[in-house]
Design a protein around this nucleic acid. Structure first.
Length: 921
RNA sequence: GCGGAUGUGGUGUAAUUGGUAGCCACGCCAGACUUAGGAUCUGGUGGCGCAAGCCGUGGGGGUUCGAGUCCCUUCAUCCGCACCA
């Protein structure tokens, strides 16, 4: 009986489904382990072989942990709201709900064939009303809270209102959009609109008019992480800056905690670094520079280099700065107006595109250096951003390259205050060297001068130490249909929440998905999109990241209609022990869900401050495209290594009709009509294709579908091969060449247990020491590899194991039984089948994972290398019990040693761990 | 510009963490078998050389008895941020 993977895999997948093998419940006293994959967005194209890579790795780890005795939560679901389904709906008129359901069904079929140990009873879909109820609920909680910096946590907005009534803003330290100052009396005098506007300055979910990334083509705004190089990530359409009233989440309130929390996480350094850069903390000072002729105004700036204040030769304000017109001198005002309107016209994209161009205008106004009273001219320039710091800087051209370029362009003085560098060539930006021209700082090192100056700034009352973050609040509304509706209605323009017991506010059906004629979001088309009293609901919907921000919590308790997650379930499962997914979510989902979790943590709904303890980023699977070379203007194709002799054109060819770079010529002729009369110039009777690594996509004809692989080789082969391909975290091209090796390995594995006629070979004979050694060597290696996510090397270890046991004709159950349990995480179907054939109890996936016993690896003698002057010459076998002196004596007596020493005396013999390694002579 | 990662045979990769470079596979070569296959099995396969041997981990330098691994420098590729003061 040969290894019939088709029958075996169908049989076990059916049994797992029917018996609910992978269903888990909370079990007090049994240690839990939560393994999560980033759930997929079910696109219309289905899965290609790259998608399951991370799922296979996490499945191996889940199965391993399960065999190690853990209660493993390993769920799966779908991130089902989002733009592509809606774009498709606009093009075809098909309702996103239908296409999404179709796609999900297709995904599920594909996933099921791979043999995952998901507990599907916990499946969630972000577009289900029972799910998005809790997305809306969390939003309402954010609306109802503000962030108290003094308390270091979110607090109910009622507390803030009470405070305003009693003391106004006095002593308030809260996260906000703008620093406001008002008294209790002023608060009481505000009308309802003013009060709400004031509260929205503090709410964690709030409305504000902000510059947003507007994508006209998609008809919606996008978050910063949804835009790349001025184009939308989805679709690649141009994005422009626009001032719009939007809902936002005050993510910045948590900037410091998001940063600090990183130190507690087992994430890759590179990913943590990406998040640190995105949060962009910088420590420095805010300082006030008096403006000449405006006694009531001091120009506020932020700097990280307070030490260079004696090198300030001009000031720069962003063109959008509130005082830009006010301080301009009458002579300069027209030029200032002109510059402001010009830079308004330039989009963010243009500003990004020519960062080298220097532009600006003198305002005619002057500041006074608060340290030495020097008059400093104030300029406007768009290299200063309105949205960061205070929108104004002190310029130190000697030590900042942008200030240097500006000074050169406008012929402004450049005063060095740190020794070093050649200021005729460039500025000297390094934070090292001795201070000069700086009065009391002279002679100090920069590293000493910075803190000394900060002290001095505070002592003289010129400013204060200040921390700035680059992180921005997340824009939370999308002018689209296929997303969570905001549970918000407006009374006289003031937002009110849909009562919690009325949630969810369901997404109404619709049949035209485009924006309305006057540019309103699609929900404006819905008749009756208002409360019973007739108050209109919010028209925009929530962005894609809303539904994915707390989904890991919902898996803990997916059917609960009283809470997002019950306290009991949350306290058992706590947080995700292992999260596997792509690095592309570094500045999106992985920031938002940490924020979301910390917010719920502050409110006491969850018991862990961080959602994902350990995170592994699987690499991207790229495509490996194949090419044929057509001689221009002919139907003749020339084999790859001969192509230089002709004038050829490179054409992508479907990788599925190429094997080991050899083209299937008949299949090629049949592939497309235009190739049916092709002629070929061969080499060695074969047509060899060229190849290149490219993104896996239909247009490159390099998409490989897992269903085809499974059909031909089986799911176990696919699983093992995907792991064998290389290190999990590394990006690599998919190359179906080589899969035969893995498939051959599984067949060899099968033949360890079954003769050609299907009879079981395993018997009760004693295991040979060699076989036991092989087994335990493999257990050791595989266990260590799984813990280190080094699955490719464990596959190699299995291959060596099978080769050795095959050569030794090992039949002992003492070796063959543990081996099944060992391979089960990788190839569960074949393992179950053999487990059953061996007559073992229960299921292989519940079998205890074999434990390594070092006693089987103990040897009496050891082979070690002998090198001379570091050059390896021969190997020698030595008794392990020998002392170093004995070993040395025996080594020197060896004729081979004498030969290499060639009569010379050894100067030194180097021993490491009792082994002789090197003889120096 | 700043930050991070990577660089090893024809290909994917491995290397006991400073100790025999190339494990395990793919491919290729030779052979066996055969109901001729996209089958199976055996042997070989880093380069140069008939050989002893020499050379080899992007390049150059260093530390060390010994370097793919550590340090300096340089080049290339990929990723993230980007006028963030």
């Amino acid at each position: 009986m040969e290894y019939d993977f088709r029958e075996i895999e169908a049989k076990w997948q059916k049994r797992w489904r029917e018996e609910g093998t992978y269903k888990v419940t909370e079990e007090k006293g049994k240690p839990k382990f939560y393994v999560l994959d980033m759930f997929p967005y079910p696109s219309g194209a289905g899965l290609h072989v790259g998608h399951p890579l991370g799922y296979i790795a996490s499945d191996i780890y889940s199965r391993y942990k399960r065999q190690k005795g853990f209660n493993v939560l390993h769920p799966m679901g779908y991130d089902a709201f989002g733009l592509p389904a809606e774009q498709y709906a606009i093009q075809t008129g098909q309702h996103p709900e239908k296409t999404t359901t179709d796609n999900i069904n297709r995904y599920r079929q594909q996933l099921d064939k791979i043999g995952f140990s998901f507990d599907w009873s916990r499946e969630i879909r972000t577009c289900d009303r029972g799910y998005y109820k809790w997305t809306q609920w969390a939003f309402e909680k954010m609306f109802g809270h503000y962030y108290d910096n003094a308390a270091g946590k979110a607090e109910p907005i009622e507390k803030l209102i009470k405070r305003f009534e009693e003391r106004g803003t006095e002593g308030l330290d809260a996260a906000c959009t703008q620093q406001l100052r008002f008294t209790a009396g002023e608060w009481r005098d505000m009308d309802a609109h003013a009060k709400e506007r004031t509260l929205e300055n503090y709410r964690l979910a709030f409305r504000a008019a902000t510059m947003v990334n507007w994508c006209a083509e998609l008809g919606t705004v996008l978050a910063n992480d949804e835009v790349k190089d001025g184009l939308s990530v989805r679709g690649g359409y141009p994005v422009e800056q626009r001032l719009m009233q939007q809902w936002l989440l005050r993510v910045t309130a948590y900037a410091e905690r998001l940063l600090e929390g990183l130190d507690t996480l087992q994430w890759s350094e590179s990913l943590k670094e990406i998040q640190r850069n995105w949060i962009g903390k910088s420590t420095g000072a805010q300082m006030f520079f008096p403006i000449e002729g405006h006694d009531d105004k001091k120009l506020e700036i932020f700097t990280t280099r307070a030490d260079t204040v004696f090198g300030v030769t001009f000031m720069v304000m962003a063109p959008e700065h509130a005082w830009a017109r006010e301080i301009a001198s009458p002579e300069q005002l027209p030029a200032v107006e002109e510059y402001i309107s010009q830079s308004k016209k330039r989009s963010e994209r243009e500003r990004m595109a020519d960062t080298k161009r220097v532009s600006g205008v003198f305002t005619g106004a002057y500041c006074l250096n608060p340290f030495n009273g020097t008059r400093i001219p104030i300029y406007l320039s768009d290299y200063v951003l309105a949205g960061y710091g205070t929108g104004a800087i002190m310029a130190v051209p000697a030590h900042d390259s942008r200030d240097w370029a500006f000074a050169r362009h406008f012929n402004l003085p450049i005063i060095p205050v740190v020794a070093g560098g050649d200021l005729d060539v460039s500025s000297y930006d390094a934070k090292e060297g001795k201070m000069i021209n700086s009065e009391f700082l002279d002679g100090l090192d920069v590293k000493e001068a910075i803190p000394a100056m900060l002290e001095e700034v505070e002592r003289r009352g010129i400013g204060a130490k200040k921390v700035n973050y680059r992180l921005r609040d997340a824009i939370f509304s999308r002018q689209r249909y296929w997303g969570e509706p905001f549970p918000v209605y407006y009374v006289d323009g003031i937002p009110h929440l849909v009562p919690e017991d009325k949630l969810p506010l369901e997404l109404p059906p619709i049949d035209n998905f485009g924006p309305t004629a006057d540019g309103e979001p699609p929900l404006a088309r819905v008749e009756g999109w208002h409360t019973a009293e007739g108050y209109p609901y919010e028209l925009s919907t929530m962005p894609g990241f809303a539904g994915s921000s707390a989904y890991y919590l919902r898996y803990m308790d997916p059917h609960n209609d009283k809470a997002l997650v019950s306290r009991q379930a949350n306290e058992y499962w706590r947080n995700v022990d292992l999260y596997v997914g792509g690095i592309e979510h570094a500045t999106g989902h992985l920031i938002y869900s940490r924020f979301w979790n910390k917010f719920l943590y502050d409110l006491g709904y969850v018991c862990e401050a961080e959602p994902f303890k350990k995170l592994v980023n699987q690499g991207m699977i790229q495509g490996r495209s194949s090419f044929v070379y057509r001689i221009k203007n002919t139907d003749t194709f020339v084999s790859a290594s001969l192509k230089e002799e002709y004038d050829t054109q490179e054409i992508h060819v479907d990788v599925n009709i190429v094997r080991n770079d050899i083209l299937d010529i008949e299949a090629f002729r049949a592939w497309r009509d235009e190739f049916k009369n092709s002629e070929f110039i061969l080499e060695d009777g074969k047509y060899v294709c060229g190849w290149a690594v490219e993104k896996m996509s239909k247009s490159m004809f390099n998409v490989v579908n897992p269903d085809n692989i499974i059909e031909r080789y089986g799911a176990d082969t696919l699983r093992v091969y995907e792991m064998f391909l290389g290190p999990l975290e590394q990006s690599k091209p998919w190359d179906t060449n080589g899969i035969d090796g893995v498939h051959k390995f599984l067949r060899k594995f099968w033949r360890l247990y079954f003769a050609a006629d299907g009879t079981l070979l395993a018997d009760d004979s004693e295991a040979s020491p060699e076989a036991l050694k092989t087994l335990h060597k493999t257990i050791k290696k595989v266990s260590e590899d799984i813990e280190n996510f080094s699955f490719n090397t464990s596959v190699s270890a299995f291959m060596i194991c099978v080769n050795e046991l095959g050569d030794a004709a090992c039949r002992s159950r003492k070796v063959l039984e543990p081996l099944v349990a060992l391979i089960c995480p990788f190839a569960p179907h074949i393992a179950e089948e053999i487990w059953e054939a061996l007559g073992m109890k229960g299921s292989a996936c519940d079998a205890p994972f074999p434990v390594f016993d070092p006693k089987y690896l103990v040897e009496e003698s050891f082979e070690y290398p002998v090198s001379f002057n570091g050059k390896m010459r021969f190997k020698k076998r030595l008794s392990l019990s020998a002392s170093q002196e004995e070993a040395e004596r025996e080594l020197l007596a060896d004729p081979a040693t004498q030969r290499y020493l060639d009569g010379k005396e050894p100067k030194k013999i180097v021993f490491v761990k009792g082994k002789i390694i090197n003889i120096v002579h």
